[in-house]
């Protein structure tokens, strides 16, 4: 009897010990879950907020741009294509902007593929605060325009952007491109530094910022701003859709 009682006492003690252990383990597990939950929660919140910010950064450009009224293509613009075509594509661009150089092959291909179906205008928006050679390169473009070879010069400026972007005096490089284009080099140099070129670029820059353009490249199809397409196919689709509209 006493033996049995002792045994049960021992058993009870063991049972209690086991319960404690289980409880401790459960608490330990809960604490671990709680910790893991906090860590996962913080990581999730950070990731979600990054995604949200990317969306916000993308949309803010769009909402502000929908209110932008851009002046239609005029005689003053540097253009390519047929003025009577259904599509008017306007690009605000900066020769020293890497994104503009990245978009250059796309617009080039677009213009060669659609030909006269697009009336294209290049408007200068040199971001002179971040790009030290933006203004002078725009003036070089204007000087080439005076000799009817703006788009040929654009080709050199964009494809060789990395060669001149950081030069303290890029005018020699620009003159070399003018030579390659068989331009009248003396006239080119004079035009590049003329008050006329400076005024043209400054006016273009002021006009662009006064209507609220804040990034380059900015594209407008028939007066409406488009979100910069991510690929050639996306860009082509926008133009194609616009053509099909009418």
């Amino acid at each position: 009897m006493t033996d049995e009682h002792k045994l049960t006492k021992k058993e009870r003690r063991e049972l209690k010990k086991q319960e404690w252990q289980e409880k401790a383990e459960r608490e330990k597990r809960n604490a671990l879950f709680k910790k893991a939950g906090i860590i996962v929660g913080v990581i999730l919140v950070v990731v979600i907020s990054i995604v949200g910010l990317i969306k916000l950064a993308g949309s803010s450009g769009l909402t502000s741009s929908s209110e932008i009224n851009i002046p239609p293509i005029s005689k003053n613009d540097i253009t390519k294509g047929d003025p009577k075509s259904k599509i008017a594509l306007i690009e605000y661009s900066d020769f020293q902007c890497p994104a503009c150089a990245a978009y250059y092959p796309l617009t080039k291909r677009l213009l060669s593929e659609f030909g006269d179906k697009i009336y294209f205008a290049y408007r200068m928006f040199p971001l002179s605060t971040i790009h030290k050679n933006a203004i002078i390169s725009a003036q070089a473009g204007y000087a080439a325009h005076k000799q009817g070879k703006f788009f040929e010069m654009e080709d050199y400026l964009f494809t060789k952007q990395t060669e001149w972007a950081e030069l303290s005096d890029p005018t020699t490089a620009f003159t070399d491109y003018a030579k390659l284009l068989k331009l009248d080099v003396n006239k080119f140099k004079a035009d590049m530094n003329s008050g006329e070129a400076k005024n043209y670029v400054a006016n273009s820059q002021n006009q662009a910022s006064s209507i609220g353009i804040n990034s380059t490249p900015s594209f407008f199809v028939n007066g409406g701003r488009i979100i910069n397409p991510r690929s050639y196919d996306d860009f082509k689709k926008i133009i194609q859709d616009e053509l099909n509209k009418k």
């Binding site: 950070v46 990054i50 910010l53 990317i54 803010s60 450009g61 902007c97 804040n214 990034s215 380059t216």
Partner: peptide, 28 residues
């Protein structure tokens, strides 16, 4: 976290080559 939102917003805009809506002149 608030600071992170602020700085990350600017970082994203930088890589998008865009400016944030600025209310103080000189922000750009």
């Amino acid at each position: 976290f608030i600071g992170f939102l602020d700085a990350t917003y600017l970082t994203i805009l930088h890589y998008k080559n865009a400016f944030p809506p600025c209310t103080i002149s000189g922000c750009e």
